[in-house]
Simulated scan of single mutants.
Amino acid sequence: MKQFGGPVLFLDRADINTDEIIPAKYLTEITKEDLKPYILEDLKLPGFDPKGEKTRSARVIVSRANFGCGSSREHAPWVFEVNGITAVIAESFARIFRQNMFNCGMAAIELPKEKIDLLFSFDNCPDTAIGIDVEKQTLTISGGGRKEIITFDVSPFDRALVLAGGWVDYADQKY
């Protein structure tokens, strides 16, 4: 089964849109792998480097509200997928982006603001990582000698999509 979690990339802003996740000028690329170097290229945050080690090593993104707003393109989840990111955790998601994450076999986890704030309190801790158990609907964040366990809810169908590896794998198993 696919492992969910790992090192965390904190993106402390609401309304991160799909053009910031993968700029539209790269949508003509032929394969998902061709998108890989352009992840978060147009995202502007103080001190953020889209080519930096934190971005390259990230397996989980933590952000604020309305993540993935903008266009409905699947390229945004695809660029996360080819960069090894297995989950995005935010206060809320744009509806189509959220479903595209599940359809691609990745977790889109919504948490209330106070839980997101708790996750952000780990931002400057060394070796911060999040482990995610999609079946049990728990995540464990650790770093700097601290550890917190948080529960989350995902619908049974979306959980089944993620656990199957995405919509295509789910359909192959069921039909």
Rank of each mutant, 00 (worst) to 15 (best):
A87S: 10
A107Q: 06
P126M: 06
K54D: 12
K54M: 04
R146N: 14
D169W: 00
G70D: 12
M101L: 15
I21Q: 04
Y38T: 02
F157R: 10
V154H: 02
A171S: 11
L45A: 08
D15R: 14
T140Y: 04
F120G: 07
L11T: 00
I130L: 05
G47M: 08
I149P: 00
D15M: 08
F80V: 02
Y38G: 01
W78K: 00
P50C: 05
D153A: 13
T18F: 07
A24L: 11
M1S: 14
L40V: 04
T86Y: 05
A87D: 03
P77C: 06
I149L: 09
K25M: 10
T55V: 06
I16W: 14
A107V: 03
N103M: 11
G5A: 06
F10N: 01
A129W: 00
Y38H: 15
I16Q: 15
R146S: 14
G6V: 02
F122N: 06
V62N: 11
L111N: 04
A14S: 15
C104G: 14
K2H: 12
D172C: 05
A171E: 12
R59G: 04
K32E: 15
I85V: 05
A58K: 01
D127F: 09
C69P: 09
S92N: 09
I149Q: 12
T140C: 13
E53L: 12
Y170P: 11
G70H: 13
P112D: 13
P112Y: 09
P156Q: 09
K36S: 01
I116M: 10
N103S: 12
D133V: 05
D153W: 09
G84N: 07
R56N: 03
F157C: 07
A87N: 04
F122L: 07
T28R: 11
K54G: 00
K115W: 01
I116L: 10
I22D: 07
R98N: 13
E20C: 03
Y38V: 03
I141V: 13
N100H: 09
Y175M: 11
V60C: 08
A164F: 06
L43G: 01
E53P: 00
F67I: 05
V79Q: 04
I132N: 04
M101E: 07
